[in-house]
Design a protein around this nucleic acid. Structure first.
Lengths: 214, 214
DNA sequence: TGATGAACATACTACCGGGTATGTTGTCAA
DNA sequence: TTGACAACATACCCGGTAGTATGTTCATCA
């Protein structure tokens, strides 16, 4: 379980650029972010960026990929748990923690999904993008399957699986929109936030009254 | 309670432009939407648009305002209800219906809020925008106050008011991201969707087991 | 009937931003 | 020592877009 950006990117200079780009994409969106913006936030110029990446879309795709890789890594150890509710709780908590601690990357993933949904990609990017979206879809399916099992076991109560899944994810993902770090914030504070988010999502799924969260 | 765009915009040509613009802003976002795009979707040219609006930002602000006006109109009749839970249920349901039926305008409001949060506005637009955001904040407070009363009466159970409010809104607003109209869809189908959304939000707030929704 | 203005269309300008072509500097190996 | 290459910076090109300036058409009214 390696959650940082560094562990998922080979060269240090590339990682710096990706982090800066993720921040810009989060703050200004894809189109509003110019390569010069990213360069300026690094105290550099375009030259440096185009030395490491072929295009703006290329950078974007990399940020997306790294974001998803970190998510997979975060839930990996819980995927084999037998009890669906316990599995869901652990995965949901890990997911929420990821949304908070790697917010710029997760916002970029969000932007990417929306871009793909409206087909705002060039033909060549098309295949790369499709692969990333599939990556993300598979990740979502890990949760979805857990919802199915949880409903069968009588632990969750909802009519429509797709809607329940959508609503669950908007809650678990929501910190990428409203969370902002506080001064002097500790790991415990962040975990407390994540717990509140998981609790709300759990209740929304019609889960039984709360046990403790990891 | 007038929910349509026509009832909130004086001239018909202006209303047409606003509707087309709302669709474009929803599909492509603010920056990605060119004035020519909006004009083309109307079978017209820039000339028509700049005859009715002074700038792109001006159109955007109008779409925002109309979107919010429709929302206010939708919940108006329920605001005076004494029972907080019943009030919340009616307002939440009306809100969810609005998210579904006026999706392009509501997505534009969403985009506008995000733009303001990152300060992507020019100085003059600044005051207009601030006013719109305040408009939206007041709307949110109507719900927030209901949450406070509902918690005091023991009907809702949550620790943090701000977080509960955030999570409630992301659920109620979520249809603007995942809803898309089906062929042959009836009003009853839409109300059924809204009911599911409201139920999930209600549960997330720690509401008691369900009565019927309006 | 002709003058006037609303409601557009057309033609043009200025600028911004992605991408490229070409320097410049430091490092390392032969 | 040099030459070769990585790792950038600088200078430039060019397509797209907000905004403007200037037609054009049609209805209305004196």
């Amino acid at each position: 379980m390696t959650l940082g950006v560094r562990e998922h990117v080979q060269e240090s200079s590339r990682a710096d650029i990706l982090e800066a780009a993720a921040n810009c994409f989060m703050e200004r969106g894809y189109t509003e972010t110019s390569i010069d913006d990213v360069a300026r936030s690094l105290g550099a110029t375009k030259g440096r960026i185009y030395h490491h990446f072929r295009s703006k879309a290329d950078i974007f795709a990399e940020v997306f990929r790294v974001g998803m890789e970190m998510n997979y890594a975060a839930i990996e150890r819980y995927r084999a748990m037998s009890d669906p509710v316990a599995r869901w709780r652990h995965m949901a908590f890990a997911h929420a923690i990821q949304m908070i601690t790697t917010k710029p990357f997760q916002r970029t993933v969000w932007v990417g999904v929306k871009m793909h949904l409206r087909g705002a990609t060039t033909p060549e990017q098309r295949s790369v993008f499709a692969e990333l979206i599939e990556y993300r879809t598979n990740y979502g399916n890990v949760f979805r399957e857990t919802l199915v099992e949880g409903r069968e076991s009588g632990d969750f109560r909802f009519d429509d699986l797709s809607i329940a899944n959508q609503l669950m994810f908007v809650v678990l993902n929501s910190p990428i929109f409203w969370y902002s770090p506080r001064v002097g914030e500790t790991r415990a504070d962040i975990e407390d936030l994540a717990r509140k988010v998981v609790t709300a999502a759990y209740r929304g799924l019609g889960g039984k009254e709360e046990q403790s969260t990891p």
